[in-house]
Each structure stands twice: as C-alpha cells, then as structure tokens.
Design a protein around this nucleic acid. Structure first.
Length: 218
DNA sequence: CAAACTGGGAACTCTA
DNA sequence: CTAGAGTTCCCAGTTT
C-alpha cells in the first residue's frame, strides 16, 4: 500500500469514526424519543425544502445532559420564573426552541423535563446550528443557501442573535458573540464538521456530517 | 479610510 | 488527572 493510499485510508477512517459518533448520537436520541412518545420522529416531521418542520423541536428537553434539548415553546413559557431570555425576546424573535438560561453551574437543567441522554453526549455547536437551520422561524438569523448543499449563511443583522442564543444554550457566563462563535466554527475545519466558504458570513457543513444529520430524518 | 469580517495562537474553563 | 470541545482574548490581515 503506498503512502498516499495509506493516508487517504486513514482520513477515511477518521471520517468514518466521526460519522459513527454522529450516527450513534442520533440513533440514541431517536430511540429515546420514540420510546417516550411512541411516535417516531420522522412520522411527525414533514420536510419540504426550506420549510421543513424542525424535527429537533419535537424532541424533549434533557435533564442534565444538553443533547438536542431544543424547543418547546410551551415548556419554556411555563418557566415563567426565569426570564433571562427576555433581553433577547425584547429585541427580536426567539426561536421556539430556546430554553431559558439555567444557573451557570447547571446550564442544561430544565425544570420538569427529564430526557435520558447517554453520558458523554453534549450539545455541540454544529448540532445547534443545524437545529436553527431547520427552524423556519429562524430564517432571519441564518438560513440555507439555496442550490448549495450544506451551505448556510448568517444574517448580517442577526448573526449576534444566533451567537447569543448559542451562549444561552450553553449557559455561558459571558455573552457569546459572533466573533467568538465563528472562532469555534473555524475550529471545525480541522475536524471536518464545518468549513468556511469564501463568502461573507457563509459556512458549509462537511459532506459526511450533513449526510448523517439528514439521513437521520430522511 | 473605517467598519465589518476573517484567521489563528494560546491560555483557560468545563465536563466526562 | 486527562482529553475533548469549546470559550475568551487579542491582534493582524482582508474585504466591503
């Protein structure tokens, strides 16, 4: 085997293991969700181009593991005691899935909802972004670039809102900014999850990453 | 020219 | 304790 073949085989394996991690994650989540609700996610999700229903939003909030604990306008609103999201709500629309910020110590603890997520599964930035992209109500913040697979673009106006939401989701002590978030995004280039596109505010999901995420809900 | 973006090193935090 | 995955700071380069 030549060195060239060997190295591409290695990168193939790396990609594979990345894929496996993502798939494993999604499968676990799928199983849990199905078990809890009795209805598979894909049967409740309709996908029509840009106006896909946000599947993550059908998922329940997790307890201490922040996995894909999206959405749930109803449960968020019921947590009336916490209005840390008010600052954002006042200045723009909040997505359905934004939960209120929990204590700094336990950012992902959401009142009243327990969703068993396998240990070691944390919500990652590219999950969060995919989530938002699948939510039509967030199209004013970031959206898919038509006719370009996996390419998405932040709104120049609302990019910081996306970042702020991400920061809230993680329960960061300090407010997240687009600059800091994009730094994290750039780190994804090394792992192949997301790449920078030579265009303003535009990024692209890695091919394999995107396929895995999409395959999840067909 | 200024502002907005982009890119990257490095130290640091947090969590499994 | 260690490693992974960001987070934060800061500064320089590029684009609009």
């Amino acid at each position: 085997m030549s060195a060239e073949v060997a190295s591409s085989w290695n990168s193939f394996q790396e990609t594979q293991s990345d894929l496996e991690v993502i798939l494993e994650f999604l499968e676990d989540y799928y199983r849990q969700n199905t078990a809890e609700n009795g209805v598979p996610v894909h049967e409740r999700s309709v996908s029509v181009n840009q106006t896909r229903v946000q599947p993550w939003n059908c998922l329940e909030l997790s307890d201490s593991k922040p996995a894909f604990q999206t959405c749930l306008a109803h449960s968020v609103q019921s947590a009336s005691g916490q209005n840390t999201t008010a600052t954002l709500s006042e200045h723009g629309s909040l997505p359905n899935f934004v939960s209120t910020r929990q204590s700094a110590k336990h950012p992902a603890t959401v009142a009243g909802r327990a969703c068993p997520v396998p240990a070691g599964r944390k919500l990652r930035l590219f999950h969060f972004l995919f989530e938002m992209l699948e939510d039509p109500s967030m199209a004013h913040c970031l959206s898919w670039v038509p006719a370009a697979a996996g390419v998405f673009r932040f709104s120049s106006r609302n990019k910081d809102q996306v970042a702020a939401l991400w920061g809230q989701r993680k329960g960061n002590k300090r407010p997240m900014t687009y600059q800091k978030m994009s730094r994290a995004l750039r780190n994804y280039a090394r792992t192949g999850h997301i790449f920078k596109v030579k265009k303003k505010l535009t990024y692209q999901f890695g091919r394999e990453t995107l396929m895995s995420l999409q395959k999840f809900y067909g």
